[in-house]
Amino acid sequence: MEKLVNKDKTFLSLLTKHKWAVWLTILLITIIWGYAWVLMKLSLNYMGPFTFSAFRFAVGSLTLLLIVWISKMGVPPRAMWKHLIILGVLQTSVVFLLVMYGLRFVDAGKSSVLLYSMPLWSSLFAAKYLGEKITPAKLTGLLIGMLGLLTILGWDIWIGQNVNVIIGESLIILAAISWGIANVYYRLKLQDMPKLQSSAYQMLFGTIGIIVATLFIEWGQPLSLHVNSIYYILFTGVFASALCFTVWFYILSIIDMVTATLATLLVPIFGLLFSRLILGETFTLGITMGSTLIIIGIIVAQVKKRNSPRR
């Protein structure tokens, strides 16, 4: 285990020496994640949402496990397996089963905004389980962000939106809550594990959960492995899932959580942009107002932390 930690430290030290490389990496990651929302939406033309998730994360897990094997990292200690299973269920199974099902009814751009309300939920759970204080600025930011969520959902209700759309939006918000819980659980139980190893095995266990759900719910449903659908699976599995999530864990060890949280705001922005350019989705008044409030809320809740002393 000590050798694995040393490998992590070597990689982190290389990134730390080149700040421009860190920020370029963050930009590339958020662009890939934003573009992935479009591919996730398009994949529903070829297969069910759970089937796509099973293919995507199976590819992602195999990619990471191959890298772990080449790096000679081995299998995590048995004491960590329980925590990896829980993290895999929270961060991979629950989040992406809910997101993919919600995407059947919700536009890709709006879905990305709702899921990336995650920092709001992370702040609440961190206050309870990590002992982080909810400052007046953070409380104000949370209230503004919640108002943004209600604006998106409430606007749809008032304009007579289809009930399936509202259900889809609610499922994606539940996915954001699960992601927030997963972030706190990782900090509590798995912070000291090698990033690549923890990412690979949590994704493996999460993928098993997705496959089980797929077999029960979508067995026998139409499946088309077309050139396009294979591209969607490979891109989201290898790049958006395996590589990006692993590199992101390394980034979190270099920059502070405030900066990391603000950086995730680029994802829904790119998601909305790509959805507009590729899918032709329109920006309604409710989406625009709600998205703006969520982004303002997260900024208000997080930026003020820079003025507080570091522990």
Score class of each variant (00 low, 15 high):
residue 69 W to S: 15
residue 96 F to L: 09
residue 75 V to F: 15
residue 66 L to K: 04
residue 64 L to C: 04
residue 74 G to N: 02
residue 87 L to C: 04
residue 68 V to T: 09
residue 71 S to Q: 11
residue 103 L to M: 05
residue 65 L to K: 01
residue 104 R to H: 10
residue 103 L to T: 04
residue 76 P to S: 10
residue 67 I to C: 03
residue 71 S to L: 11
residue 91 Q to Y: 14
residue 70 I to S: 02
residue 93 S to I: 07
residue 66 L to A: 15
residue 96 F to E: 03
residue 69 W to G: 14
residue 66 L to N: 04
residue 90 L to K: 02
residue 65 L to P: 00
residue 88 G to E: 04
residue 85 I to A: 09
residue 104 R to I: 12
residue 99 V to H: 02
residue 84 L to Q: 03
residue 72 K to G: 06
residue 105 F to K: 00
residue 92 T to E: 12
residue 62 L to Q: 01
residue 99 V to P: 00
residue 86 I to C: 09
residue 72 K to T: 11
residue 90 L to Q: 06
residue 78 R to A: 14
residue 90 L to F: 11
residue 90 L to Y: 09
residue 75 V to M: 11
residue 81 W to I: 15
residue 87 L to G: 02
residue 104 R to K: 12
residue 81 W to D: 06
residue 66 L to T: 15
residue 86 I to G: 05
residue 75 V to S: 06
residue 106 V to W: 05
residue 62 L to R: 00
residue 93 S to V: 10
residue 98 L to S: 06
residue 103 L to A: 13
residue 107 D to L: 10
residue 99 V to E: 00
residue 108 A to R: 02
residue 74 G to D: 01
residue 89 V to W: 10
residue 93 S to H: 05
residue 79 A to E: 14
residue 97 L to F: 02
residue 93 S to R: 04
residue 96 F to N: 01
residue 86 I to R: 01
residue 65 L to A: 07
residue 98 L to A: 13
residue 87 L to A: 15
residue 79 A to N: 09
residue 102 G to W: 05
residue 96 F to S: 04
residue 82 K to F: 14
residue 73 M to V: 07
residue 63 T to D: 05
residue 103 L to F: 03
residue 97 L to Q: 02
residue 93 S to Y: 06
residue 73 M to F: 10
residue 64 L to K: 00
residue 89 V to G: 11
residue 77 P to M: 12
residue 67 I to S: 05
residue 73 M to W: 07
residue 66 L to M: 11
residue 82 K to P: 01
residue 82 K to D: 04
residue 73 M to R: 01
residue 88 G to F: 15
residue 90 L to W: 08
residue 101 Y to A: 10
residue 65 L to T: 03
residue 93 S to D: 12
residue 107 D to I: 09
residue 76 P to A: 13
residue 107 D to F: 08
residue 73 M to C: 03
residue 66 L to I: 13
residue 63 T to I: 11
residue 68 V to C: 05
residue 95 V to I: 14
residue 73 M to S: 07
residue 79 A to G: 08
residue 78 R to V: 11
residue 72 K to S: 08
residue 73 M to D: 04
residue 95 V to C: 08
residue 64 L to H: 00
residue 64 L to S: 02
residue 108 A to N: 03
residue 63 T to L: 09
residue 105 F to H: 07
residue 90 L to C: 05
